[in-house]
Design a protein around this nucleic acid. Structure first.
Lengths: 334, 334
DNA sequence: GTGAAAGCGCTAACAG
DNA sequence: CTGTTAGCGCTTTCAC
């Protein structure tokens, strides 16, 4: 069993209060006492019990993080920037991978509540009323990263998905494309699902291009889905000149499907992705993609959260970051 | 402030002990009492304080996880399988991304000790004496996943890296390659660094191929490094027919460099990767790679750990899993 | 500068 | 079946 504070006190010949003072900065302690305590700590290999301390200070320096898919590059990058920022500020993160399982999200939200975490960061693709209610009653500050949920005492870190998607589509239109297939996300997902779809449609409309329902597909952001949908597109009699997928993963899936079928990018099909993560540089041709400031989203999320926790600063309801088109080699001028 | 157990007790007209019993299974409680408590819990939105509970039960159901790079596909897959397994067993994971920073690893190891986590999973590429000493004195069970560190009370989940690397090299040799460049990891890293290098050399030796020092490069497993090293290889006057990289990421980096320089795979260069993760299927040509059972490594690590925690079962010093060559399209017969 | 003592919120004997 | 009570290990008044 690990040594306790009273063991250190006894060994150092002082009271537990003095030991506690030394451990927490050493104010108002004589140098001799300080010395004695330090020696005793070393000899006993003592380290304070975080749990007991949390109980009395009502603070545990923990941030709960909910993420839909740890293996998706987009989230893993956000996560790593969150981890970096928390670690530098002496906070720790408790990670839950929900895999689109709402029950699991609820379970973890409840756990975070029981754990009395100091804050929560949520990245997910959809939510239902149970989740929204739970978030409202939980009274722990929440930051949404790359998603929006109507909920009190929460901030959403997002880009303007509508505008970003509009700009991506417009870029293809400006290159001369009029037959642009759209591989979207889940429409229930406000930002990356619905907003990106709306941006696509509005860009078509503003440029006098008829909307063609058969060019539109919805899916789950994953590479495999992009591949499968592209297979359908190739099989169909409709032949778009450009494919716009709202995630890099789906764009790469589409790319591979095109290559596997003996077609060329961008000669036969142009491809536009979304996210602008490292994946777009790891394939050939490199993929043109609408970039979100991924690392920044994570770091701003956590900075906003920690500032709120430590200073009680007001949480803004949204922070909108800038998107940016990364032009690579997957789109050609018609 | 959240409701406490005594608030519930008062509201339900029972004692705190009864409330505690109801919360923890409800054995030995009358149905009326149970009802009253449940109602009070609902009305107050009560949830037990995890921290207080941990303090008295001396158990917090937390597993500390140390990972070198959250954004590397290899680790993110292991992590997700760890997360899945822990979540199903009502444990939670505390994640630390050390980014090859030994000081950070030490800091987190100490934190895990202070937190009294029930177990630790470590995936890292190198360690020094400070870390080994710390691990030995910490008296918390440790599982090493994909690495080995001499340390008591610990298990390593690994493949036979020497043999796997030997087999990978042998495959290239059997295809007729004799000029095989090797892009290795860090030699200080026993398994993925040294063992894989040794396997490569032994395969050459057993097949009567002279070892050529100029074909050997060491690096950090990352895609960018694979790219850079490949650039050097192309520039040099030595022209290997095959490139064997000990991570998929480096293999993909090499592939992209080859393509960017106008060469073809496998026509001009054959490429062999290591890990066999999802990355090998996301590029064209698909990469032939020596596969580790990645998800299995994570799940076996956590199963072994939890069993030890809950039953006190002996920790084996090693569990060696099977490797498997995944043959794709990046290697050709000479 | 230092120690005694009162909790933090909960569980687990121990009586009844 | 139920309540009382003694801690879990620590921090923090409050006296001295």
């Amino acid at each position: 069993m690990p040594a306790r504070i009273k063991d250190v006190a006894k060994r150092a010949g002082v009271s537990v209060a003095t030991v506690s003072r030394v451990i927490n900065g050493g104010k108002n302690v004589s140098d001799e006492a300080k010395e004695a305590v330090k020696n005793a700590v070393d000899e006993l290999g003592y380290s304070p019990n975080y749990i007991a301390r949390s109980l009395v200070t009502q603070k545990n320096n923990m941030i709960g993080v909910i993420v839909p898919d740890l293996t998706a590059s987009f989230f893993s990058v956000i996560l790593s920037s969150i981890e970096k920022e928390t670690s530098e500020n002496n906070y720790n993160i408790l990670i839950c991978n929900i895999e689109e399982d709402l029950d699991k999200e609820i379970k973890y939200l409840n756990l975070f509540k029981e754990m009395r975490v100091d804050g929560i960061i949520v990245m997910h693709e959809k939510a239902d009323d149970r989740i929204i209610n739970l978030m409202n009653e939980i009274s722990i500050p929440i930051i949404f990263c790359s998603c929006v949920v109507p909920c009190v005492n929460a901030t959403a870190i997002i880009i303007n998905d509508f505008k970003a998607s509009y700009d991506a589509t417009k870029y293809l239109i400006d290159l001369g494309h009029r037959d642009i297939a759209f591989i979207g996300g889940d429409l229930r997902d406000t930002t990356s699902g619905k907003d990106r779809y709306d941006g696509y449609r509005k860009a078509l409309e503003d440029n006098g291009i008829n909307f063609n329902k058969e060019y539109v597909w919805f899916s789950d952001y994953k590479m495999k889905s992009g591949y499968n949908i592209m297979e359908e597109i190739i099989k169909s009699d409709k032949a778009p000149t450009a494919i716009y997928a709202v995630s890099d993963d789906m764009a790469v899936g589409a790319l591979n499907c095109i290559l596997d079928n003996g077609y060329k990018v961008p000669d036969d099909f142009s491809i536009m992705g979304f996210d602008g993560g490292m994946l777009i540089d790891s394939v050939r041709p490199k993929i043109t993609s609408m970039q979100q400031p991924i690392r920044e989203m994570g770091s701003i999320a956590i900075k906003t959260l920690l500032e709120h926790i430590e200073t009680g600063s007001e949480l803004p309801s949204q922070i909108v970051l800038k998107h940016k088109l990364i032009i690579n080699d997957s789109c050609r001028k018609l």
